[in-house]
């Protein structure tokens, strides 16, 4: 029961600056506090005409439905269409747009794994992630451990994902710290030379497009 904590007499409505976060009248440990706050922000935003209920619902549906399929589509096409792969590496944003995949204000950079180079993506400052391509990021991508350690001990981090790079492979870390978003083009698995694009998509995992793991082994 925390509703009575709001029966305080003083008026802080005109206080010029905020720090809602500091406000001791809010019991953040009450059950469902953040759901309540989220609902309050949504309702107020609608009442004030900042957003409409329909717009919000559309984006909830978008986040509900958007997984990694678009990323797999891009990667499988790059594996089977060399001209597309060239365009993808030269201008990821334009190549994604060819497949009707928007970048929503950011630019896409695609980095290619080869026999001599492996790429891995992190965002140390927040959790930048190509959301229109891969959906919302997994918890580990947002974790302090991943954000802190991937830049200075990336090989140890890859080991935790079960990924050991062969000797002689250089590791390129990309800290997604500004206006670019990154997608790894994993190596096409051996033994898939005659596979059609649709079947190849099934080998393209989320983790392989972040660079913490290779694409799925068809064997």
């Amino acid at each position: 029961m925390t509703g009575d904590t709001h029966d305080h007499g003083h008026d802080h409505g005109d206080r010029p600056v905020l720090t809602y976060a500091d406000d001791s009248v809010h019991d953040r440990n009450e059950t469902g506090h953040f759901e309540l706050l989220t609902d309050a922000l949504k309702e107020l935003s609608i009442e004030k005409g900042l957003v409409t209920a329909t717009e919000v619902r559309e984006y909830v549906d978008f986040f509900d439905s958007r997984g990694t399929e678009k990323g797999a589509e891009i990667i499988a096409k790059a594996w089977t269409d060399p001209a597309y792969k060239d365009r993808l590496l030269a201008d990821g944003t334009a190549a994604a747009a060819e497949l009707d995949i928007p970048m929503a204000g950011a630019e896409l950079v695609v980095v290619e794994n080869t026999d001599s180079v492996h790429n891995v993506i992190v965002c140390t400052l927040c959790s930048c992630y190509p959301r229109t391509i891969l959906g919302l990021p997994p918890d580990w991508y947002k974790s302090k451990s991943y954000r802190s350690r991937t830049v200075n001990e990336p090989r140890a981090v890859l080991t935790e994902f079960g990924t050991e790079l062969p000797d002689g492979v250089a590791l390129r870390v990309h800290d997604s710290n500004a206006d670019m978003r990154y997608l790894v083009l994993p190596k096409r698995p051996a033994g898939t030379e005659d596979w059609p694009e649709e079947r190849l998509r099934e080998l393209v995992t989320r983790d392989s497009m972040i660079g913490v793991a290779p694409a799925r082994d068809p064997a």
Binding site: T124, L125, D139, W140, S143, K144, S145, Y146, R147, S148, R149, V151, N152, V157, E160, F161, D175
Partner: peptide, 11 residues
């Protein structure tokens, strides 16, 4: 956070 010590990643 970049470069700070951290524990194992919760996967």
């Amino acid at each position: 956070l970049g470069g700070l010590p951290g524990g194992p990643i919760d996967l």
